[in-house]
Lab assay of single mutants.
Amino acid sequence: SDYEVNVNGIHHRFHNISEELIKFIEEALRRGEDLREIIKKVRELLG
């Protein structure tokens, strides 16, 4: 049904976003950045 496609589409989009965010955060932590600064950047990215 349309509803299922829609829900799956939304889930898929969020899954991709969270994968990208996790990579972004892991790389920043590897560079020794402060978690609070990383979260601030993530918030800015998400608008």
Rank of each mutant, 00 (worst) to 15 (best):
S1C: 06
S1M: 14
S1I: 15
D2S: 05
D2H: 07
D2L: 03
D2T: 04
D2V: 05
Y3W: 08
E4T: 07
E4D: 10
E4K: 02
E4P: 02
E4N: 05
E4Q: 05
V5I: 12
V5N: 01
V5P: 01
V5C: 02
V5E: 01
V5W: 02
N6F: 04
N6Y: 06
N6S: 09
N6P: 01
N6R: 10
V7L: 06
V7Y: 05
V7C: 05
V7H: 08
V7T: 04
V7K: 05
N8S: 06
N8T: 02
N8R: 04
N8W: 00
G9V: 01
G9E: 04
G9T: 02
I10R: 09
I10S: 07
I10H: 15
I10A: 08
I10V: 10
I10K: 08
I10Q: 13
H11I: 14
H11Q: 09
H12T: 04
H12K: 02
H12P: 00
R13C: 05
R13Q: 13
R13E: 15
R13T: 14
F14G: 00
F14M: 00
F14H: 00
H15F: 10
H15M: 08
H15G: 08
N16T: 03
N16V: 02
I17F: 02
I17G: 01
I17S: 02
S18A: 04
S18D: 06
S18L: 03
S18Y: 03
S18T: 09
E19S: 09
E19K: 12
E19N: 11
E19D: 11
E19F: 15
E19V: 14
E20P: 08
E20H: 08
L21R: 02
L21F: 05
L21G: 08
L21Y: 05
L21C: 06
L21K: 04
L21S: 07
I22F: 06
K23G: 07
K23A: 11
K23V: 11
K23R: 12
F24G: 04
F24W: 12
F24V: 08
F24E: 06
I25C: 02
I25R: 00
I25D: 00
E26T: 14
E26R: 15
E27N: 13
E27M: 15
E27D: 13
E27C: 12
A28I: 05
A28Y: 14
A28G: 07
A28V: 05
L29E: 03
L29M: 10
L29I: 12
L29F: 10
R30I: 08
R30L: 10
R30H: 14
R30D: 08
R30G: 09
R30K: 09
R31A: 13
R31P: 01
G32V: 04
G32N: 11
E33K: 10
E33G: 07
E33V: 13
E33D: 12
E33H: 12
E33L: 15
E33M: 15
D34G: 13
D34A: 11
L35W: 05
L35F: 05
L35A: 09
R36I: 11
R36C: 08
R36V: 08
R36M: 12
R36E: 07
E37G: 09
E37A: 13
E37T: 11
E37M: 12
E37S: 13
I38T: 05
I38S: 01
I38K: 01
I38C: 02
I38E: 00
I39H: 03
I39D: 03
K40H: 09
K40R: 14
K40W: 15
K41I: 09
K41Q: 14
K41T: 08
V42C: 02
V42E: 01
V42T: 04
R43T: 14
R43Q: 08
R43H: 14
R43M: 10
E44K: 12
E44W: 15
E44R: 13
L45E: 05
L45P: 05
L45T: 07
L45M: 10
L46D: 08
L46I: 13
L46K: 12
L46W: 13
G47R: 10
